[in-house]
Structure formats: C-alpha cells, structure tokens
C-alpha cells in the first residue's frame, strides 16, 4: 500500500477515534430519520417491507452528508489544505484514503442501525439476505466516493455545506435508485436484484475511476 495513503488513513482514523464526532452524529441522525419516517408513514406488514429499503438508503444518504462535509472542513484549520497541496505524493492517494475512512464510518453506522431498523419496521428477509452484504457496501461506496469528491470541490465556496447536497444528490440519483431497488428486491423476494447490483458496480467503477483521475485538478484548482 502506498505510504501517503496509509498515513492519511491512520491520521483520519486516529482523529475520529479520539472524538467519535462523525460516527455519533451520523448514528443519531440516521436513527432520527428512521423514526421520523415510521411516524410519517406508519409502516405495517407488506407496506413496511416495500418502503424499508428506500428509508434505509435515504437515511444513510442524509446522515453521511454531515460526515462528508467534516472530512475536508477539518483540514482547513491551520491551513492543512495548503500543506496537502504542496505534498509531492499524488492527490489520488489523499482522496482514496478519505473515501476508505468515511466508507468505514458509514458502514459502521449501517451495521449498528440495521437491528433497530429490523425491529421498528418488523422486517423479515424474503429473498437472499446475504446479497445485502454486497448491495449496501456498493451503494455506500458510490455515496462516499462521490461525496468526498464533491465536498473537496465545494470546500472553497460560500455556504459549502449546503452546496455539497445540491451537487451530490442529483448525480447520486441512479445509484440511489439501484440501491433502493436492489434492497427492496431482496427484502420482498419478489424480484431478482442482480441487474441492480451490476448497475451499482458499474456506477462505482466509472465514478471512482474518474474521481481518481480528476482529483488532482480539483485539489490544485486555481
């Protein structure tokens, strides 16, 4: 593993380990979204099976935005961003380290949230449950990969926190659709989720590649 990537990875993990800011706020926020949706839609029986996938994905999406913003905002203090620009290692390593770390955080949140989710929505998995272990990471990677990229892109702008959601969500729509469709297909067991999993994988490959290629341009934008 390249050394710069490893250094960034360890640094971010250590910062998060000391405060647990991102994980706690994401966890509480996504839990709130789940509760709010159950109050708003009163999910029972068949209906809850159908909307559960969508609620889980949207809850993750909203919750991760705060962590994504934090990912770069904490680099602004003490001009760390400027220092990062001067480092001789490629920006792609910095980007990849941030994505891996935040992917890890969001996954932790999903793993903790899942049992509550199953209880609140009275879920039972009618399809192949193990496929969820493929769908959720793929969807989360799509979200975090694009999110970290756009957070870096909007870091210099006015009201950047708001701007990140505005540019991330439209581009994330196909991945969200695929994630929701696949999760629902697995939960209800009525359809085959393979096509959607392929779409998610394709989306991940395309956007991660382009992000890695273009990240230096964004980092050194002048």
């Amino acid at each position: 593993m390249p050394r710069a990537l490893w250094t960034h990875l360890v640094k971010d993990l250590r910062i998060e380990w000391r405060s647990l800011d991102a994980i706690i706020s994401m966890l509480f926020f996504s839990g709130l979204v789940v509760v709010l949706f159950s109050v708003a839609f009163d999910p029972r029986g068949e209906f809850s099976q159908r909307i559960a996938g969508g609620v889980l994905c949207v809850a993750t999406m909203f919750a991760s935005v705060s962590a994504l913003n934090q990912a770069w905002a904490r680099e602004i203090r003490h001009n760390v961003m400027d220092a990062q620009r001067m480092v001789p290692s490629p920006g792609a390593e910095l980007y990849l380290a941030k994505v891996i770390v935040n992917f890890f955080f969001v996954s932790i949140v999903q793993v903790i949230l899942a049992p509550f989710f199953f209880i609140f929505y009275n879920l039972h998995i009618a399809g192949q449950g193990w496929l969820l272990a493929l769908v959720l990471p793929l969807g989360t990677w799509a979200l975090v990969g694009n999110g970290i990229f756009f957070a870096a892109l909007s870091i210099t702008s006015r009201n950047r926190e708001f701007l990140l959601s505005l540019i991330l969500f439209p581009i994330f729509i196909p991945a969200l659709l695929a994630m929701v469709q696949a999760t629902t297909a697995i939960l209800t067991g009525e359809r085959d989720p393979t096509l959607w999993i392929k779409l998610l994988a394709g989306y991940d490959i395309i956007f991660t590649t382009v992000s890695l290629l273009l990240f230096d341009v964004v980092l050194h934008a002048e």
């Binding site: 892109l153 909007s154 210099t156 702008s157 701007l163 540019i167 002048e222």
Partner: peptide, 9 residues
C-alpha cells in the same frame, strides 16, 4: 448554483 456560490478564480 456551483458557479454562483463558488468564488474566486
């Protein structure tokens, strides 16, 4: 919106 909010060169 990005063009409007992002400032600078």
């Amino acid at each position: 919106l990005l063009r409007r909010f992002a400032a600078g060169p």
